[in-house]
Amino acid sequence: MKKVVTVSLVALAVICLGTAVWADQKNYGCGLGSIAFEGNDGLISQVSAATTNGTFGNQTFGITSGTSNCEQFKTFVSNEKINTFVAENMDSLAKDIARGHGEYLDTFAGLIAVPESQKTAIYASLQANFSKIYTSDSVSYLDVLRNIDSVIASS
């Protein structure tokens, strides 16, 4: 019985650690095609980078403030939060813009403070001008922001 318990425990162990280790894999980028993927390039080795820097003050909370080094736009106030969100969710945002709807688009609209009454019109106009926003596969997040800015400005 002792053996059973031990073996079961080992099995559970593998599982929970595995879970834990996978939990912090991340792979953010700034352009299209930077969505995370399953890789053989060390699911596990990516872990340390994400967490050993500590919880506060780096990744999330560190980027939430300040507008320094941010380009200013005509239709919205730029800040680090917007830049980071667009950079790290390029593919999902592109998908939502092409569909004219979605959680990533809603979040983006919230960040650039689109009034509720204008949402439908702006979503439709972004969708209609998709090709002007995502001009090529090497488009950067700043290009995307600039292009969105001009689409909203001219709509």
């Binding site: 080992v10 162990a13 593998v14 929970c16 650690l17 595995g18 834990a20 280790v21 939990a23 912090d24 060390g42 596990i44 080795s45 872990v47 340390s48 967490t51 050993t52 919880t55 999330t60 909370f61 939060k81 969100f85 969710n89 959680e103 990533y104 809603d106 979040t107 919230g110 960040l111």
Partner: peptide, 26 residues
């Protein structure tokens, strides 16, 4: 926005990739 919420996660840090070692150390 739910997407912008902060995820708090507790996990083990390791660079070991060898399964059995993993299990025993864990």
């Amino acid at each position: 926005s739910k997407l912008l919420s902060h995820a708090i996660n507790y996990s083990a840090i390791t660079t070991d990739t060898f399964g059995p070692l993993f299990a025993v150390k864990g």
